[in-house]
């Protein structure tokens, strides 16, 4: 397990999971990122314990005539990490506001 660097991708993926997107491709679409970026992020966070993975019920899948789908849900430490990321983001926003509006360049 071990700490995991909070990047824009991990924050986006965590938020997508937190807002109820459970399946890989759904998360992918919610983030607007390609699968080649989302999946390694999911694996990393799964391994680090921020996410919890499982499988949907087999009956539901069989009813629709397709294989089971893997599900991803937020683990407590993931919720914590997301909170920290949000706080950091708020801090950055506050710092930016303190600097005042972007000055207009004089000709």
């Amino acid at each position: 397990m071990g700490a995991i660097r909070m990047t824009q991708v991990t924050a986006l993926v965590l938020r997508a999971v937190a807002t109820g997107h459970r399946y890989g491709f759904d998360i992918m679409e919610a983030c607007g990122l390609p699968s080649g970026t989302v999946y390694p992020a999911l694996r990393r966070m799964d391994k680090a314990g921020l996410l919890r993975s499982g499988w949907e019920a087999a009956e539901a899948a069989h009813a629709e005539g397709r294989p089971r789908r893997r599900t991803y849900t937020l683990a407590p430490s993931g919720r914590e990490a997301l909170g920290e990321a949000d706080a950091k983001l708020a801090e950055v926003r506050r710092l930016l506001m303190d600097l005042g509006p972007t000055p207009v360049e004089e000709a």
Partner: peptide
């Protein structure tokens, strides 16, 4: 394989989506 099969089946299985499997 099962995971990717599940997602592809649920999403119409386009090659575009499957491309990322290589990076995964």
């Amino acid at each position: 394989v099962e995971e990717w099969d599940g997602e592809l089946a649920a999403h119409g299985g386009s090659v575009r989506h499957a491309w990322g499997a290589l990076f995964d």
